[in-house]
Design a protein around this nucleic acid. Sequence first.
DNA 1: GTCTATATCTTGATAGAC
DNA 2: GTCTATCAAGATATAGAC
Lengths: 201, 201
Amino acid sequence: MAGMARKQGSHSDITGPRVRAAALRLIARHGYAAVSMRQIAAEVGIQAGALYNYTPDKQTLLFDLMQGHMTDLLAALEAADLQGNSLARLEGFTRFHIRFHLPRPDQVFVSYMELRNLTDENFAAVEALRRAYEDVLESILRDGEAEGVFAVPDPRITTMALIAMLTGISNWYRAGGRLESDKIEAIYWDMVRRAVTASAR
Amino acid sequence: MAGMARKQGSHSDITGPRVRAAALRLIARHGYAAVSMRQIAAEVGIQAGALYNYTPDKQTLLFDLMQGHMTDLLAALEAADLQGNSLARLEGFTRFHIRFHLPRPDQVFVSYMELRNLTDENFAAVEALRRAYEDVLESILRDGEAEGVFAVPDPRITTMALIAMLTGISNWYRAGGRLESDKIEAIYWDMVRRAVTASAR
DNA sequence: GTCTATATCTTGATAGAC
DNA sequence: GTCTATCAAGATATAGAC
C-alpha cells in the first residue's frame, strides 16, 4: 500500500508527531498528572477535542512515549553491534549509553519518572523492555567475570549501579555546558572501568 | 513556655505528623499532582477541610516534606562526624549515605521526583540544601586528590556520579530482600573506592 | 479541631456541525 | 480533521456551626 494516495489531504502525518512532541516536552517539565490535555493541545495549536484524533486517551499517549523511547533505545543498541572481549564491549556499552541519552533529556526524564502513572499492563510492557536493556549489560559483566577480566561479586547489583550512575548524567548535563560529550564519555568510562576491575591495593 | 498546658486538649501534636506521614506515603506512590487533599485526609481519617489546620495549602505540605528530609539528612551527616584521612572519610560518607537512605524509600522518592512541583522559591531552598550535601562529598574528593590518594580528574562530576550510583539503590532495594544493608554497603563501598583510586593497568 | 456545605475552577472525554 | 459546546466528575480552598 506504500505510496497509495489518501482520499483527504490530511495533516495527520505531521500533527501526530507534533502532539507527541508537545506531550513529551510538557510532561518532562511538569509531570504527567500536572499536564492537561488542553495544555498539550494549546502547545500544538489545536483544540483539546482534536487531540483525540491522535490518541484514544491520555494514558495511551504517555505509554506510546515511554514504549517508543525504550524501543528506540534497544534498536540503537542492536545497531551499535558491540563486539570484542568483555572490556571492549563494556566500553562500547558505556559510550553508547551516554551518547544515546545525552541528546534526549526529556525522554530520559519521562521514562524514569512516570512509571508510576502507567496502568499495570502498560507498566509491565515498559518494564520488560527496560529489563532487556539491563540484561545486555549484566551479560557483559558476567562474561568478564568468567574470563577473569572483571572483579564483580554481584553482576546484577553492579548493573543497577552502573546504569544509575550513567543515567544520572542527565540530572546535571546541559547542552552547551562546560563539558563536551567526548569528555564526559572519557570521565565516565574511566570510572566504570575502575569500578569493575580489581584495584592495586 | 515548655510544659505550659494547652487550653484545649487537642490532637494537634499527633494529627500533624500523621498528616505528613500520609502525604509522604501517598505522594511517593502516586505523585504530588495525582494525590488529592481528599485522599490525604481519608488516609488520616479526617475530612479534607480539617487538613488546613495543619498546612496553609498543598504546596506547603510538599515543601515541608522535602525540606524536612534534607534537613534531617544534613543533621545526620553532621552527627556522623566523619573523621580521618580522605579515604576513611569517603568510606564513612558512602556508608552513611546508604544507611540513611535505605530505610527511607518514600522520602528518597519524593525528594528526587517532586522537585518539578515546587514553586521557584521553594525549589531554590531545597536545592541549596541538596547542594550543601553534595559539597561535603566533593570536598572529600578534592582533599583526596590533593593528597594523591584519589585519581579524580573532575571532582564535581565524580560527586554527581557517586551520588547517583548510591541513591539508585532505592530503585531496586526492598526491605527483607536478598541482600542485607551490610552486604550492600560492602559492595558499593568497593565500587566507590575503586572508581576514585588509580587502577593497576 | 473537626465537621458539613459550598464556591469556584479545571479536568478527561464526547457529540455533532462543518 | 478541527471546531464549539458540553457533561460529569473531581480539584483546592473557604465559611461557619459545633
